[in-house]
């Protein structure tokens, strides 16, 4: 983990209240999709933890939703502005874990299930999965059509993308699990990588027998010192920031 200066290359609105920001700097601490960075903002005491959507050697892409004063401030930042960023935090998704399951079970129908601002880390994951020879389906859930983002980006990777919206204004009316469920109520998928609001994660948990779940929590430090974001798991107490944010399905306690 390092505290580095990044320069904003672009900060643009991509859906209702949702922004995509490109940050230029040293990304070498990022090792896995699903990790996050913790951004210091002028005038705010705590940093803002935001998941990494995608990254290259010298560029990090993040997507955030304006939900409070901090993210409101972020949305006003301009190209060339500099940010102090703790990078990289958290465990991220493990493709090795999926491979272990594949070895054991043979073929597994794999899906990426994202809800709202839980969608971004799944994009970097999709690219890494493709590099590893895994071709997942993608199911993205939003409130309405105006909230939808990254449908095309996932499609451009050559993946099958389905959208669900709560109000039915795009794709299937309902939630992501309505798309992931067969007519006999069984799961269309054997393995899921997911990120989104907790009720969605719970619904996905109830449907798909195996997978990796990325959780959100209010944090102070983001690197495991304060115990602000602790949760109980079957393997003992874990810190969402340091031992997570990704938990394996079998260890989750609701």
């Amino acid at each position: 983990m390092r505290d580095l200066i990044f320069k904003i290359k672009e900060n643009r609105k991509i859906a209702k209240d949702v922004y995509e920001m490109l940050l230029l700097g040293d990304t070498s601490d990022i090792t896995r999709p699903g990790q996050f960075i913790n951004i210091k903002l002028d005038g705010f005491y705590l940093r803002r933890p935001i998941s990494v959507c995608d990254w290259s050697e010298d560029e990090i892409k993040i997507i955030y939703k304006v939900v409070g004063e901090g993210t409101e401030y972020m949305s006003g930042l301009k190209e060339g502005d500099e940010l102090q960023v703790l990078t990289a935090l958290g465990n991220g998704y493990s493709i090795d874990e999926l491979k272990l399951s594949l070895e054991k079970n043979g073929h597994m129908r794999t899906v990426l299930a994202g809800g709202g601002v839980g969608v971004p880390p799944l994009y970097g994951l999709a690219k890494k999965l493709l590099e590893a020879g895994v071709r997942p389906d993608v199911v993205l859930g939003f409130n309405g059509a105006e909230d939808v983002f990254y449908k095309k980006e996932f499609e451009d990777l050559g993946l099958k993308v389905e959208i669900s919206t709560m109000d039915g204004s795009m794709g299937k009316k309902g939630v992501v699990t309505d798309v992931m469920r067969a007519e006999d109520n069984s799961s269309l998928y054997d393995y899921v990588f997911t990120c989104g609001p907790e009720p969605m994660l719970k619904a996905v948990y109830d449907l798909v027998p195996e997978g990796q779940f990325s959780f959100e929590a209010r944090m102070a430090c983001g690197f495991g010192a304060c115990m602000g974001c602790s949760c109980k798991t079957k393997y003992g107490n874990k810190r969402i920031c340091k031992d997570g944010p990704v938990l394996m399905r079998e260890e989750i306690i609701w």
Partner: peptide, 23 residues
């Protein structure tokens, strides 16, 4: 001790409130 339920952290001007609860 596991401590208190989530959320345990609230931001404030020039500080924060924590309610970890002696985890």
């Amino acid at each position: 001790r596991f401590g208190n339920p989530q959320p345990r952290i609230a931001e404030c001007p020039m500080g924060l409130i924590n309610s970890v609860g002696l985890q």
